[in-house]
């Protein structure tokens, strides 16, 4: 799997906007932006049966990672709380044994040898569903607010 991760600013998102994850070459709408509570996540089921955890952070950015907690195998990361490190990296802490995973890179902050898959995520307008907006260009090399494409997994 080769997924490029991004964080997407959604300060202009509206109640009708939708969160989209990239699946292959498509962007798949997974939930309403309004369904996300800042600081926590939801689980979504992708068309191929995989589970992703989708989060909204306190700056209004959306992040998506695999929902599986690699330490326990349980599909629970969507139920973890978000936090940020002193240098500003946003992570999710597993609700089971509390390991933290960087949401941009998927790297586990408590164990160098562990990394989880990261999905590209963006805010798309509901009308039309998959239309890209000007500041969210869709495409294989989609770049987030911070510029670089990150973390091949």
């Amino acid at each position: 799997m080769t997924t490029t991760a991004t964080a997407t600013t959604a300060t202009t998102a509206t109640a009708t906007d939708r969160v989209e994850l990239r699946t292959g070459t498509d962007w798949t709408p997974v939930c309403d932006w309004a369904a996300l509570v800042p600081g926590r996540g939801v689980a979504v089921l992708l068309p191929d049966g995989r589970q992703a955890a989708v989060f909204r952070d306190h700056l209004g950015r959306v992040h998506a990672v695999a929902n599986r907690d690699p330490f326990t195998g349980a599909y629970v990361l969507s139920r973890g709380l978000l936090g940020s490190t002193p240098d500003g990296r946003v992570y999710v802490a597993s609700p089971l044994l509390k390991q933290r995973f960087d949401l941009l890179t998927g790297a586990c902050l408590d164990d160098d040898t562990v990394r989880i898959p990261v999905h590209s995520a963006r805010i798309g307008s509901a009308q039309p569903p998959a239309a890209a907006r000007q500041h969210h260009p869709a495409g294989p090399a989609h770049r987030g607010r911070n510029g670089a494409a990150r973390g091949r997994v």
Partner: peptide, 21 residues
């Protein structure tokens, strides 16, 4: 929590899994 973090925190980020609960 947001207000407490903004007015009394030493970091201004997301908060964390310790202080939130």
């Amino acid at each position: 929590h947001r207000q407490l973090l903004a007015e009394h925190g030493r970091l201004r980020g997301e908060g964390c899994e310790i202080c939130k609960p």
